[in-house]
Design a protein around this nucleic acid. Sequence first.
DNA 1: AATTTAGATGAAAAAAATTTTCATCATATG
DNA 2: CATATGATGAAAATTTTTTTCATCTAAATT
Lengths: 273, 273
Amino acid sequence: MKGNQTMTQNCLGTIRSSYSKFSEKEKKIADYILEKPETIIHRTINEVADDLNIADATVFRFSKRIGFKGFQAMKIALASEVITPVRSIQEEITEEDIEKNLTEKIFKLNIRSLQNTLGSIDNQSIKKAIDLIQHANRIEFYGSGLSSIIAMNASFKFMSIGMKASACMDSNLQTISASNLTKNDVAIIISHSGSNQDTITILKTINETGAKTIGITSSLNSPISLNVDIALYTSTEETENLPAGFSSQITQLALIDALCSSIIKIKKKLPQK
Amino acid sequence: MKGNQTMTQNCLGTIRSSYSKFSEKEKKIADYILEKPETIIHRTINEVADDLNIADATVFRFSKRIGFKGFQAMKIALASEVITPVRSIQEEITEEDIEKNLTEKIFKLNIRSLQNTLGSIDNQSIKKAIDLIQHANRIEFYGSGLSSIIAMNASFKFMSIGMKASACMDSNLQTISASNLTKNDVAIIISHSGSNQDTITILKTINETGAKTIGITSSLNSPISLNVDIALYTSTEETENLPAGFSSQITQLALIDALCSSIIKIKKKLPQK
DNA sequence: AATTTAGATGAAAAAAATTTTCATCATATG
DNA sequence: CATATGATGAAAATTTTTTTCATCTAAATT
C-alpha cells in the first residue's frame, strides 16, 4: 500500500483527530475547512489565506502538517471526501426525457436521503447498537411487507460475515421466532413507518423475552421507536413518484451495511480464537 | 440553482455523452480520463499532456470544452466523482471514532455509487427496458446469493404497483421458472459481477424460451451483460470495509425504483380500462 | 531577569503550473 | 484554387503554489 499514488488520505478525519495539537492559526484553518469543506475546493490558497487574514505560506504549511504534498493535494482529497450536489442542467424537458428525468429524480432522492440520514445519525446510538450486536448470541431480524425483505437481506449479510443471524419473511414464523429469543439475543426491528401493526405485536413478544432490541425506522416518535432499546433513524422523503416505503429501503440498507462494516472491523482486531 | 459555486458538474457523464463530438486529440484525452479517472487527479496538466504526447494547451481546451473553468476545476470535479480508496494511516484514531468514521465512509461510498451510476446511465437502454416491461405479460426476476434478495425485493415492488411479477430465491425453482417463460415475458437478471455461474446457466435457459432479457450488473463486459437484450449498468466501488457486492445492492435497488416510478407514471397516463 | 532556543508566522522570492496568445497546419467550402 | 474554419502546438503571460529567509513569540535555561 505504501506510496500508492492513487490513494488519497482522509483529510477531514485527520484534521479532526489532530485538532488539539494545532497552533492558533492552524486551528483557524481547521475550523474554516471543517465548517464548510466544500468552499475550499473552489478557492486558491491565496483566497483562503485572505479569507482568514493569514499568510498563504501558513495555509501551505497546514496542508503539509496534516500529511499532504501541498495545498493542491489537500484540495483533491477534500473534493473526494465532500459530497458535492450534482448540477442538473436540463434546459428543456421533452416527452422523450420522461424516463431520464424520473430516473434522475429517484437517484437524487436517494442521494439526499443518504445525506440527510448521515447528517442526523446519532453516533452514540450506533456505538451502542454495535456493542449489542457484537456481544449477541444471535441476531434476529423482523419486518413486515417490504421491510421483511430488508430483514432477510440483513440476515444474509450478517450471516456472511460470520454472525449467527436469521430472519423469516412469514409473519407467523416471525412470531414463533420472537417468542424463542433469550436475554442474550438481539432483535433488529425494521419498519419504515414505525407503526406497522404486525411488527408492533411482534415487538411486544420480543420485549417479553428480555432480548435486546434495535429499531430502524423513519419516525422517531413511532410506537416501535419508543419501545426498543436503541432507535436508529433513517431519514427519507416521500415522493409522488413512488409508493411510500420504497426509498426508505436504501437508507435502511446503508445503515445495515454500516453496522456490518463496523462488526467486520472489530472482528479483525480481535485475537483469532 | 444557476451559478451556485458549490455545485460541481458531472465530468465523466459529460465526457461520455459528448464523446462522439470530440476531435481526435480530444478523444485521446477522453479515453485517458475514462480509462483511469483516478490517475489524472494526481497529475499536472503538463504530465497529462506528456503522457498523451499532445500540447498542454490542448488538454486545457478540453477542460473548457466540456464546461469547466479550467484544468483545475475539472480535476476537482473528477476527484469528487471518482472513487479513491481512502488511505488509512490515521496515526491514532480513538476507539470512539471507529464507528462514526466507518458509518460515514459507508454512506459516502453509497452516495458516490449512486452519483456515478446516475452519471453513466444510458437513457436509451432505460427507455427500452421500460418499454419491454410495460408491454410484458409477466416479469420474472433472477439472481443468486445477495442478488436473489434484490430479485425478491424487485418482484415485491413490481407486484405492488400492479404488475404480474415474481421471483424465487431457490436456484432450482429459478431454473424451473425460467424454462416456463414465453416470448411475451420479460426476465430481469441481477448479478453484481455479471459472471455468477448459476445465473449464467439460468440465462441460457431463459434465452431458449425467447423471453426478453434485461441484465443489471456492475460489469459491462461480463457474460451476463453480453447475453441479455438490454444491459443496465450500476457503478459501484469495492471497499476493504465490506464484502464485495454489498454496496452494489443499493444502486441496484435505486435502478429498480427508477424503473418502477416510470411504469407508475406511464400507467397513470393510460386511460383506465 | 537576561539569554537562548525552538517553533510559528509573514513577506518576498523562486518555482511550478495554468492559461492565453499567436502562428501554423489541415480540412472543408465556395 | 483561394479562402475560411477549426484544431493544434509553441511560447509568452499570468496565476498559483512552494520555498526561503527574516522576524517575532513564548518557553526553557542560565
